[in-house]
Design a protein around this nucleic acid. Sequence first.
DNA 1: CTCATATTTCGACTTTCTTAGAAATATAAG
DNA 2: CTTATATTTCTAAGAAAGTCGAAATATGAG
Lengths: 106, 106
Amino acid sequence: MKHEKAAAQLEALGNPTRLKIYRILVRAGEEGMSVGQVQGKLGVPASTLSHHCKRLCETGLVSQERQATTLICRANYPAMQALLGYLADECCADGTCPPVMRTRAP
Amino acid sequence: MKHEKAAAQLEALGNPTRLKIYRILVRAGEEGMSVGQVQGKLGVPASTLSHHCKRLCETGLVSQERQATTLICRANYPAMQALLGYLADECCADGTCPPVMRTRAP
DNA sequence: CTCATATTTCGACTTTCTTAGAAATATAAG
DNA sequence: CTTATATTTCTAAGAAAGTCGAAATATGAG
């Protein structure tokens, strides 16, 4: 993963409201959840929620699919896996950091 | 880990300059690296660097130790472990998300 | 004490983010 | 076509972040 993309995803998750949205979507599983359902859980105005969902989509952490008038949002699990992998491995690519940080052999 | 703390750490790593700093520190290992050494690697002004190091410290991702006039910065590996654990597990605490996301049994 | 080095604090500026109401758009139902 | 629902776009305002030069501080050396 490129550093810029990782930074963008980390920044996206760094906003408390967006982290809540993302947590809700992760827990919603493959089925996903509509923007309106997320709004019901969070209680933020629709325009604010739309803005944050867009941000999450732009980073690739979330995907969207239209179903009639509702928009289904889903956590992009492979993207999350890639980000976790970046944090765990890319930062320690040269093997000089403590073994506890590495998930791959040096 | 509390959500607010996780968000603060994610936001801290979300800035490209800070992510670079953090990567440098992670690779520096337990020995750490002085602010000046980091500056030599990144080429950002001292005041900017100081600002970012402070932010990283405030979130707990980095620790500092004075050695005479130089300040040694070190990546806080347990903090990183906790953040990775948060992303991998806390978001999936109720076990409804796909198994690929879980590191603990439901 | 004075000097030199390392780092921080201050101050100012510009940019970006966050928020949310109002209006616009999209889609389906009747 | 009209209506109803879901979501986005527009717009604006204040808050926060990022940057960096200049000045201040801290520590040790001579």
